[in-house]
């Protein structure tokens, strides 16, 4: 059995953390071939070739595959699918667009957000915002899945798999890219950061969110937010941690002014150490926190920034 793994590439660079964790999730299933799609991905392909467990890298240097356009990427996957028992990808916004499309073209179901590989046909995945875990057994010939990377440890590097070019034949031109507005930031990427500081509705305003950012910068952390904070306009949507946002599992997660709604907990409960600061001692976040501090965040956070 061989697994085709669709790589996440951003600005020509491999999202190495996400890809290395996905390799780790699927390597028990057989050889892993990584597919790097898009012109200018040479460096990403070379990086993918160094990941332990990767036996081949397929590189499709076609311009139509740039910017993660779903239609040509799905067509490329389908053209390669015959050689593979499993097709997997880290569950990023890109893969979530592409993989179900590819699955339908192959007349198979997609298995989204896999958190456990039981055997070649059987997988675990969260449902109902993480309130239940379902084990499913697929009867499809090809298993197409996305992997929730936070659950897995990244494989190491040191390999040197061959890189082979593949061509995209289908370019129907259904969609065209207009622009990307990626927030420029010196902070680490939210999903792979070692430390995450998140703010919730308790922060109270967009201006006061600067306090959360200041603590994050002191800790070299990424900034997150609860859905309540995002819905209230305090923080941008791509900071959202939770079932409807990003799922993170850093070494340290600091939740400030976050009550701990189940949908938020689903996005961070695999963190190694959780710190909660909230003035409401009844807040459910304290039930999952390793260290809880009942305090007004506007006095506790500045003090923490000073003393840490």
């Amino acid at each position: 059995m061989t697994v085709l793994l669709l790589a996440e590439v951003s600005e020509g660079a491999l999202a190495i953390d996400a890809v290395a964790k996905t390799v780790s999730a699927v390597k028990s299933l057989g050889d892993v071939h990584v597919l790097v799609a898009g012109k200018g991905g040479d460096e990403a392909a070379a990086t993918a070739a160094t990941l332990d467990g990767v036996t081949k890298v397929l590189f499709a240097p076609d311009h139509a595959l740039c910017h993660g356009m779903a239609e040509p990427t799905a067509a490329l996957i389908v053209s390669l699918a015959g050689d593979y028992s499993h097709i997997a990808a880290p569950s990023t916004a890109f893969a979530k667009s592409v993989m179900p499309r590819a699955a339908a073209m192959l007349d198979v179901m997609v298995i989204s957000e896999v958190i456990g590989v039981v055997d070649a046909d059987t997988f675990e995945r969260p449902i109902y915002a993480g309130n239940a875990i379902q084990t499913v057994k697929s009867s499809d010939a090809t298993k197409v899945m996305t992997v929730r990377t936070a659950t897995f440890d990244a494989v190491g590097t040191g390999g040197s798999a061959p890189v082979e070019e593949v061509a995209l034949s289908d370019t129907a031109g259904l969609s065209e890219w207009v622009e990307d507005k990626v927030a420029a930031s010196d902070r680490p990427d939210l999903t792979s950061a070692g430390v995450v500081v998140s703010g919730g509705r308790g922060v109270g305003s967009e201006e006061d969110f600067a306090l959360i950012e200041k603590l994050a910068d002191k800790l070299g952390a990424a900034v997150g937010a609860s859905r309540a904070a995002v819905d209230s306009g305090y923080a941008p949507n791509d900071w959202q941690v939770g079932q409807t946002g990003k799922v993170v599992a850093p070494d340290l997660y600091v939740a400030v002014g976050i009550s701990g709604a189940i949908q938020h907990l689903a996005g961070m409960k695999d963190s190694k150490i959780i710190v909660a600061i909230n003035k409401d001692e009844e807040a459910p976040i304290f039930q999952v926190a390793d260290y809880g501090l009942v305090a007004d965040l506007f006095t506790a956070v500045p003090e923490l920034i000073e003393k840490i």
Binding site: S10, H67, G68, M69, T92, A93, F94, G173, L174, S175, E176, W177, V178, E179, D180, K181, V182, A183, D189, T191, P236, N237, D238, K246
Partner: peptide, 12 residues
Amino acid sequence: EVDGGLQTIKVK
């Protein structure tokens, strides 16, 4: 809404 920000595309 994509990872890290926003993307605009034009679809037929």
